[in-house]
């Protein structure tokens, strides 16, 4: 299977990620879809380390490292400078983790997208502060163990719905994507690149050490999150037009939880409750998408055909 993306690699081997790292898979596919006229702004995150320690870099495109709260704001300024230089070919991308997006970077992100800054903001989401040692973030899901939600004090709060928060800003394009669905990811990256204004991509990226999974099931685990409707694939245009991109094989949430050590403390009753929460969320999303009538259905069914899980990844 071939991706509809640049033949060239913009991320070289020799990076500093753990085996099976979802962030690296996401970044590799993302940069291939973007092409060479791309500048990455990377606030403090696993990726900030992965892309290389001075004087080495694994990236073939420019990278600007930024303080943790400053992904969206540094990207805003860089865009302004390129505009003043008359460079309209280059796309500025902020590439942040969930901590740098849901938590400490949220204010700058909200400000930047309210100004409808012309950039792509990517949150690759591994659902905790993985770089600092698996601490709980507001993206950590209900039920999860982390080093700051230890033992019986596991997280009993919902994951923040970052997509809806961005949708509420009525920006031109918000989409979720997943490392296990590379064609869908590539299509969304290209779509984001073609739109003026603020674009937000939320990419689900598994973390073997943080999720307590073997590295070889990293992609499979990410895929199960979509199949269990825990991380639905969908996109929202102009804050109103919802399109669900995956309505294929479905699984109970238990399948997804059982393979991960971070959920090993959960009981049958917990699974039942989580299944109910997920179904509520899924129905709500379907209602939002269902209101859109015929064209959305056509788009979602064609998208569904395009994103069958494949064997390459």
């Amino acid at each position: 299977m071939r991706l509809d993306a640049d033949e060239r690699e913009f991320m070289c081997s020799g990076h500093a990620a753990c085996p099976g790292c979802g962030a690296v898979i996401a970044l590799r596919i993302f940069t291939k879809a973007m092409g060479e006229n791309t500048i990455l702004v990377i606030p403090a995150s696993c990726t900030g380390v992965i892309v290389g320690v001075y004087p080495q870099s694994v990236m073939r495109i420019p990278v600007v490292h930024a303080p943790m709260p400053a992904g969206a704001s540094v990207a805003s300024g860089l865009r302004a400078a390129l505009d003043m230089r008359g460079d309209t070919d280059t796309t500025v991308v902020a590439w942040a983790g969930d901590g740098g997006t849901f938590d400490i970077g949220f204010q700058a992100l909200s400000g930047a997208v309210e100004r409808n800054e012309d950039f792509i903001y990517v949150c690759y989401d591994n659902e905790a502060y993985m770089n600092t040692g698996i601490q709980c973030s507001s993206s950590t899901p209900y039920g999860a163990w982390t080093t700051t939600t230890p033992g019986q004090d596991w997280k009993r709060l919902r994951k923040k719905n970052i997509v809806e928060a961005l949708v509420a800003h009525r920006i031109p394009y918000v989409a979720t994507a997943n490392i296990a669905f590379p064609e869908d990811l590539v299509r969304k990256v290209k779509k984001a690149k073609s739109i003026k204004g603020s674009k937000f991509l939320h990419i689900f990226a598994s973390c073997p050490p943080g999720w307590r999974i073997p590295s070889e099931i990293s992609v499979k685990t990410a895929r199960m999150a979509v199949q269990a409707n825990i991380f639905p694939l969908y996109e929202v245009e102009d804050g109103v037009r919802y399109t669900i991109n995956y309505k294929g094989k479905q699984r109970p949430v238990q399948d997804y939880f059982e393979v991960q050590g971070r959920f090993s403390h959960l009981t049958a009753e917990d699974f039942e409750q989580i299944q109910k929460m997920v179904e509520e969320d899924w129905e709500l999303l379907q209602r939002k998408a269902g209101d859109q009538a015929a064209d959305a259905c056509i788009q979602s069914s064609s998208a569904k055909r395009a994103i069958k899980p494949n064997k390459v990844f």
Binding site: V41, V64, A66, P67, P69, A70, A72, S73, V74, A75, S76, G77, L78, R79, A80, A81, L82, M84, R85, Q107, A108, G111, A112
Partner: peptide, 14 residues
């Protein structure tokens, strides 16, 4: 914070 961060981005852009 975003004010100075955005200028850092702009100044990196030359």
């Amino acid at each position: 914070h975003s004010c100075l961060a955005s200028l850092v981005g702009a100044a990196c852009g030359g």
